[in-house]
Amino acid sequence: MPVLTLSTAAPDWPRRAVAALRRAPARAGRVRVLAVEGRSGAGKTTLARRVAEEAGCPLLHLDDLYPGWSGLAAVVPLVREWVLEPLARGADPRWRAYDWARGAFGEWRTTPVRGELVIEGCGSGAAQLRPYLAELAWVQAPPALRGRRLDARWDAAAYAPHRQEWARQEDAFYAAHRPREHAGIILDNG
């Protein structure tokens, strides 16, 4: 199937992304899951929010599930166990948000899902998760722009000491899982 490349400068890109999701088969039970993947600073969170709003569906941020700054690899089995496998069984995702200040997971939460779900974050396009995804979107932006966005984040001071560690985890993850090569949607966010 051809890859759909969308420029986020075009006003209709969210509608076209949702249309592509809705054309894809549901692979997590009756739910079509869109994973929004890409490097830090690419704009995943903002773009995923726009797609979820357009689709009228919930959005799950992997930032809520990473078990700390060294938790990129560890989030993949959590997403599968807490989010995707329940959907495949016809149940709603039940997950625990990570409390970054306490360094521990909090109370269980449930996300009601009917029809579609958007998950976003580095790791959402992992090989172990792709069998459940209706569509995978890769968000790309030039490195210099990503760096400026990271510097301007609301949590830039908290993120700064962990930025290199996180970048090394991203490098390892992308080398192993190659989500860009499996994406059916490319969101050019430069």
Rank of each mutant, 00 (worst) to 15 (best):
A152V: 10
L34R: 05
W95T: 02
R102E: 15
Y159S: 03
A172F: 12
E181W: 00
R114W: 07
V79R: 01
A157C: 09
P25D: 14
Q140S: 12
L133Y: 14
E85Q: 09
T8D: 13
A144W: 07
R153K: 04
R114F: 08
A74L: 15
A176K: 05
T46V: 11
Q169R: 03
L59N: 12
G106Q: 09
L117F: 10
A175H: 08
G190P: 07
H182K: 04
A156M: 04
P179Y: 03
E53T: 15
A42N: 06
L4H: 06
P161W: 09
L21V: 12
L129Y: 11
A167H: 11
P86I: 09
S70G: 15
Y159F: 15
P67H: 08
I185C: 01
T45D: 13
G38S: 11
H162W: 13
E85L: 14
G71Q: 11
E120V: 01
I119A: 04
Y98N: 02
G38P: 05
A97N: 03
S124H: 10
P25H: 02
R148A: 11
A137G: 09
L4Y: 06
A101D: 15
G123E: 14
R180L: 12
H177W: 10
R102S: 12
R96F: 04
V31Y: 04
L87H: 01
L150D: 03
L84A: 07
G43P: 04
V139R: 00
A126Q: 11
W138I: 07
R22F: 14
L145S: 00
Y159G: 04
A20P: 05
A127H: 14
G90S: 01
R130V: 02
A157E: 15
L150N: 05
R178S: 12
D64K: 01
A24G: 10
E81G: 13
R16H: 10
W69N: 05
A144I: 03
Y159R: 00
E181L: 02
E181A: 15
R23M: 12
R168L: 11
L4F: 03
V139P: 08
E120N: 06
G68L: 04
P86L: 06
A91T: 01
C57Y: 13
P112D: 08
R50C: 13
Q128M: 13
F105T: 02
V3Q: 14
R32I: 03
A160F: 11
G71P: 10
R22T: 06
R163E: 11
V83F: 05
G121Q: 05
R148V: 08
D12F: 13
L6H: 03
L187D: 04
S124A: 15
L59E: 12
Q169L: 14
C57P: 08
Y159N: 07
P143V: 09
V76S: 06
S7D: 15
R23E: 15
R153D: 08
E81R: 09
E181P: 01
A101L: 12
A91S: 06
V33H: 07
A24W: 07
P58D: 11
L62M: 11
W82K: 00
D99G: 03
A126E: 11
P142H: 06
R80W: 13
V31S: 03
R16S: 06
